[in-house]
Structure formats: structure tokens, C-alpha cells
């Protein structure tokens, strides 16, 4: 685990791994069976991405199970706890629109990430569609669902600025992606009778972000759960 440098594969692989784990936490807890299955399927797609990306960066299992919190390079957005269903949908919306835009760009480039991006972007379209349909339904639903959806969007807004901060070694038109992301989110929230959050897209207290290995408090607890079995039984298989 020495010589760990931030590579684009590590950053994007960690995004996929951490969000996959968070979505997996819905198993047994989702509001309806169909959503249990949907969230698990999205988690599975993300886990597939993580395995390929982390294998480009090193040994996938060592990277997933034996790193400390500060060595993870994922965005703070994806490590945020699930909250209620609307909160999870807000996180899915912000992330899947970002991921589709970024992977669309990477798919046409000549980097080692291109084959994975070209494949994953098709799956990401379904993730985005799922998040958009639910945002519309909850936003334009009952007073209660509207309130909760807006609350989720507002609470996660301060983690969205980090999505478009340049990643070392990853050549992408970050400002243009950010503009396009804002345009799409704005249009969707309008259709859903929701309001685009107005606050800063970064917490005033942050001394850096996930890409630098600085994470929010809930992430440590998530990692403890995710890594517990592997660390307690090194080398175990089944």
C-alpha cells in the first residue's frame, strides 16, 4: 500500500466502490421491493466499474479492504449516508448526471479509461433515468414527498462543487461539464416543481476534499463495516 498515487482510475474507482456500498445498505430496508431490487442492481453496476478501475490502479481487494480512510480518493458526495429515500435519490441524481457527462467525455478519449467509460456510460444512463423519474415523482407528488425531496437536494448541494474540481492526470473540460450539469439539473428540478439550491457548492469549513483523502465523519464508520470481515479473517475465501 506504499507508492499509492492518485490516479484517475483510483479516484473514479473509489467513487464507484463507495457509492456501491452505500446503495447496498438499502438491502432489506428499501420502501418497496422493486426499489430494493433497483438500488441493488445499480450498486452491482457500480461494483463492476470499481473492480475494473481499481484493477487498473493495483490489486482490487487490497485497495478496497486494506486502505485507511485517508487513502481513499472518492468524492465526499458518494460517502454521505443514505438518509431517507428522497435523500438517496438526490445523491443519485447529482452523481449519475455527473458520471454520465464525464464518462461520455472519457469514452471518446484515448486513455486507458476509455473502454470502461464507453461500456459503463450505457448503464449510467439507466441510473440517471431512475434518479430523474423518482425526482419528478417525489417533487411533483405529495406535500410530504416534495418537502423531503427538496430537503435532500438542499442538504447535499454543498458536496456538488467537488465533482468538477480537476483530477490530476484526468483531462476533461471541467468548467464545461459543470455548466452542462447545472443546466440539466436546473431543467429537471423545474419540471419536478423543485427549487435549485442556492447556497455555496462547497462547505465553508472544508480544508480540501475527497480527492485529497479528506473525508467526512460518516465515512470512517462506513469503512469499518465494509472492511471488517476481510480484516478479521485475512485471506479467507468461500
Amino acid at each position: 500500500m506504499t507508492n499509492l498515487t492518485l490516479t484517475p482510475a483510483l479516484a473514479l474507482g473509489d467513487d464507484a466502490l463507495v457509492l456501491s456500498h452505500r446503495l447496498g445498505e438499502w438491502a432489506g430496508n428499501a420502501p418497496v421491493l422493486e426499489e430494493e431490487v433497483a438500488l441493488a442492481n445499480i450498486a452491482l453496476d457500480l461494483l463492476g466499474q470499481a473492480r475494473i478501475l481499481l484493477s487498473l490502479a493495483g490489486d482490487e481487494d487490497e485497495l478496497a479492504y486494506l486502505r485507511e480512510e485517508r487513502q481513499f480518493r472518492n468524492l465526499q458526495l458518494v460517502e454521505q449516508p443514505n438518509g431517507d429515500f428522497a435523500h438517496t435519490i438526490a445523491r443519485q441524481l447529482y452523481f449519475s448526471v455527473y458520471q454520465q457527462l464525464l464518462f461520455d467525455h472519457l469514452a471518446t478519449g484515448g486513455t486507458e479509461l476509455a473502454p470502461l467509460a464507453a461500456k459503463a456510460v450505457k448503464e449510467t444512463s439507466y441510473h440517471r433515468d431512475h434518479a430523474e423519474q423518482w425526482t419528478l415523482r417525489l417533487g411533483d407528488g405529495t406535500d410530504e414527498s416534495h418537502t423531503r425531496m427538496q430537503r435532500g437536494l438542499d442538504a447535499l448541494w454543498r458536496f456538488t462543487g467537488e465533482l468538477f474540481e480537476p483530477v490530476d492526470g484526468l483531462d476533461a473540460p471541467w468548467a464545461a461539464l459543470h455548466d452542462e450539469w447545472t443546466t440539466r439539473i436546473t431543467a429537471l428540478l423545474e419540471r419536478a416543481t423543485l427549487t435549485l439550491p442556492q447556497g455555496p457548492q462547497r462547505g465553508a469549513w472544508t480544508a480540501g476534499g475527497g480527492r485529497q483523502g479528506l473525508h467526512t465523519e460518516p465515512f470512517g464508520r462506513m469503512l469499518a463495516e465494509m472492511q471488517h470481515l476481510h480484516r478479521s479473517h485475512p485471506g479467507a475465501s468461500w
Binding site: 422493486e34 426499489e35 431490487v37 433497483a38 442492481n41 453496476d45 448503464e123 439507466y126 433515468d129
Partner: peptide, 13 residues
């Protein structure tokens, strides 16, 4: 359409 995801990721219900 009942759900975009079904028994496996490749199917909708």
C-alpha cells in the same frame, strides 16, 4: 413499466 430494474440488471419488470 413497473420497475426499470428486475431480477437482474439487464431486465426491467
Amino acid at each position: 413499466l413497473l420497475s426499470r430494474f428486475s431480477s437482474t440488471a439487464c431486465k426491467a419488470l
